[in-house]
Every structure is written in structure tokens, then in C-alpha cells.
Deep mutational scan, measured.
Amino acid sequence: NITNLCPFDEVFNATRFASVYAWNRKRISNCVADYSVLYNLAPFFTFKCYGVSPTKLNDLCFTNVYADSFVIRGDEVRQIAPGQTGNIADYNYKLPDDFTGCVIAWNSNKLDSKVSGNYNYLYRLFRKSNLKPFERDISTEIYQAGNKPCNGVAGFNCYFPLRSYSFRPTYGVGHQPYRVVVLSFELLHAPATVCGPKKST
């Protein structure tokens, strides 16, 4: 009989979030998941669920729940959905087409922007091929755009693959930082360890 609440607040209220290319994953298990708490945590810009209804979450049980978190800019949030393409979905964080879970995003301009520009958040701009779903690539190998090998040196047709967002508070919403948490629900042929409040007794 599990009584402890799932530590969603640790994920959502973390002081620092990860850069999207090096997104963070927390496995959540053996706890009571009260998803209604999430609705009250922040004024969400996005709370979209796929393959599951957000209002039914509190009635369900899962084997595992994974919470992935990272920062992107406002106009990239739409890429965090099944079947999307674009720089983020292709080279940084890719959801599977049959994704079961929820994408939660909110504006973090007050936390993640600086007047002089916050350069701490990076994204991958160049990659030889698209990522597979939930693949994480943290390599910093020089990207070869031409025929000549780069031998690890940046220059003509040889690019450092990561680029930094420079978040400034005066930017338009599309270029402001957004914190994203992706909850993916895993149903294996194994005992369910993460249940809503109704199912945990």
C-alpha cells in the first residue's frame, strides 16, 4: 500500500533546468501520483496529453512515469509533440509517434532571462542524422558540413554543433524561455507502482 506522493514538485520547481540537447530525465515510481497538483503548480502555457485524457490521469496506474525536463524558446514548444519536425524535434528531443503522456510548458522569462542575455541554455544546431525517439546526444564533436574532414577544428564548413540561446527579458514571447516537462507513461507487463490517489488504497 503506497502512500508517499510522487515528487513532481522537485521536477517542476527545480531551480535550474537542463539545456534541451542534454535534457534531464527523472524516473518516478512507487508513489501516489496526484496530477491535479500539477494544474495548480504554475499558470501553464501548455498542458497537452496524448493517448490519455488529462482529467482521467488520477484514475490510472502505470509501471513507471518518466519526467523529462529542459528549456526551449516559446515558438519551439509546438515541436514537443508526436510527429513534429524542426531543429528541436530533429536534433535535441524527439517524441515517438505513439507517445503516451503529457507535455507541460510554461513561460520562464522571469527566471531564465537576463538583461545582458542568459547564454547558459544550449541547443544542438547541427547533426548528421535525426534523433530516434527519446535519444539523447550530448556530443560536442565538430560538425563537418563540407567534404573536407574537420579534424576537430572549427572553421570553414566545420561547425561547433551547439548554439546558445541568449534569453533577454525584452524579447518577444516566441523568443522567451519556456520550461518544459514531458511526462511519459510506461505500461509494462509488470506491477503498477505509480497510481492516482483513488487507485492507491
Rank of each mutant, 00 (worst) to 15 (best):
N1G: 13
L5T: 13
C6F: 07
E10S: 11
V11Y: 09
A14V: 08
R16G: 11
V20S: 04
Y21I: 04
W23P: 04
N24Q: 14
R25G: 02
K26M: 12
R27Y: 12
R27K: 15
I28R: 04
C31F: 07
A33H: 08
A33W: 15
V37R: 14
V37M: 14
L38S: 05
L38H: 05
Y39P: 12
N40W: 09
A42K: 15
F45C: 14
K48C: 06
K48I: 08
G51T: 06
T55A: 14
K56V: 10
L57E: 07
F62I: 12
V65S: 07
A67N: 00
A67Q: 06
F70R: 02
I72H: 02
I72L: 10
R73P: 04
R73G: 05
E76P: 02
Q79E: 09
Q84F: 06
Q84E: 10
N87A: 14
Y91N: 08
P96Q: 04
D98Y: 09
D98K: 11
T100I: 14
I104M: 12
A105G: 06
W106S: 04
S108R: 03
S108L: 01
D112R: 03
S116Q: 15
N120G: 13
Y121S: 05
R124Y: 01
L125P: 15
N130W: 08
K132H: 12
P133E: 06
P133H: 05
E135F: 05
D137L: 04
S139M: 07
S139P: 01
S139Y: 05
E141P: 07
A145Q: 04
G146F: 03
P149R: 10
P149I: 07
P149A: 13
N151V: 08
G152W: 05
V153R: 14
G155P: 03
F156A: 10
C158W: 03
F160H: 15
L162M: 07
Y165V: 00
F167R: 02
T170W: 06
Q176E: 00
P177S: 05
Y178P: 00
V182W: 01
L183S: 01
E186F: 07
L188N: 15
A190E: 15
A190S: 14
C195Y: 08
G196E: 11
K199G: 15
S200V: 15
T201A: 14
